[in-house]
Simulated assay, not measured.
Amino acid sequence: MRSVVLTKGVPDFSEGAVSFDEDGHLERGKTPTVMNPNDEVALEAALQTKVRHGGHVTGMSMGPPGYASVLEEAMESVYTDDSYLLSDRELAASDTWATAITLCSGLEKYREEIADIDLVFAGFKTADGETGQTGPQTAWALEWPIVTHVLALDIDPDEGTLRAKRLVEGDIDEIETVEAPLPCMVIADPEFSPTYRTASHRLAHKRLRSETTARAADHEDHLATWNHEDLNLDPDYIGLDGSPTIVSSVDPIPKAPAERDATMIEPGDEDEMGQVLEELRPHAGGD
């Protein structure tokens, strides 16, 4: 069973990590990049499939060279076997459609040169774009069936089918069970939780954790980078030129109001430091 997981780097929006300019616009160069949280769920779904049925899990990302760290994190935390980064300047500023075309070309090259693929996993949506479009658009480009909002899944290798429970949102949330032929695309729901029911599954999971420790230490030895020429992509159909999305406007993120007043003091001013001491004295223990 061979799976590829599509993952992406996103700005670290945790408190204190994200950086904005004075107009409230995100400064990507000053904000750390982390793995998209929903992609971690997709990786867990692929790992469960590997534990239960054996096989190989590949991490694939499209982005700048720095995204190699995201693929390294995927190997360290969810035990991918190897990594492929689709990266060059011609791919910059891609919208979801141009990204899907690039990812589809990467997957097709992988199938032609590396091995056939049974499953492609993707996260529900990204923390920076929030569109949820790239996975379905990639499935459309591949002409593969797609199962979305997957909460649980298993594979019948003999029949070449996937059986999944998926969340259906409406007036009330319902769960339906569906089947799809392989190969297919799986969009993991954020509520997906891997299960390892048997002792053999749990032992396999432990073994994979041990094996990946050594592999992740030499991540670059397991990383391949493909540019648009490797993927035989026309620059007119990728990157900014190949992106039909038009952004009419961008609203800056307002700065959060200060929650408390601050008084600036000079450390060398004895009187001001004395005032600080008097303020702290009631909160100190002892005499």
Rank of each mutant, 00 (worst) to 15 (best):
H228M: 03
L151F: 06
T212D: 14
A188Y: 02
H219R: 02
D241Y: 08
Q137E: 13
G239F: 09
T177C: 04
D82K: 04
T96N: 03
M60L: 15
V276M: 15
R166S: 10
F20S: 03
S243L: 01
K255S: 13
A122P: 05
T212L: 04
D271P: 03
A46L: 02
P267L: 13
P157N: 08
Y79G: 03
I265K: 14
T7N: 07
P37M: 07
E15L: 07
V247E: 14
V70A: 06
L203V: 02
A115H: 14
V120Y: 12
I253C: 10
D287G: 05
D156C: 00
L103H: 03
I155T: 00
V4H: 09
V57F: 09
D287S: 05
A74N: 01
E159F: 00
A45N: 04
R260Q: 14
M35E: 07
I155M: 14
D81Q: 07
V51K: 05
R209C: 08
T58Q: 04
P37N: 05
S210L: 08
G160S: 06
Y79E: 10
V18N: 14
G55F: 04
P32A: 11
I187A: 06
T148M: 05
L240E: 12
K50P: 06
N36S: 04
P235L: 06
V57T: 10
G286R: 05
S248M: 02
A152I: 01
G55V: 00
P257E: 15
A74V: 00
V10I: 08
E176L: 02
R207H: 00
D241W: 08
E278L: 11
D154P: 05
P37K: 03
L103W: 04
T33Y: 12
L119Q: 06
V186N: 05
L91D: 07
E174A: 06
L142Y: 13
V70S: 11
T177G: 12
W97H: 10
P194H: 09
L47T: 03
G59N: 08
P145I: 01
T131R: 09
M60A: 08
G170H: 06
P252K: 08
Q137K: 02
D12A: 10
H25Y: 14
G106S: 13
D251Y: 06
A115P: 07
R202S: 12
G9F: 12
S3N: 11
H201K: 09
V78H: 15
R166A: 11
G132T: 01
P157I: 01
E211F: 06
A204F: 08
A17C: 12
T31A: 07
D23T: 03
I253T: 13
K50D: 10
W144K: 02
P190T: 02
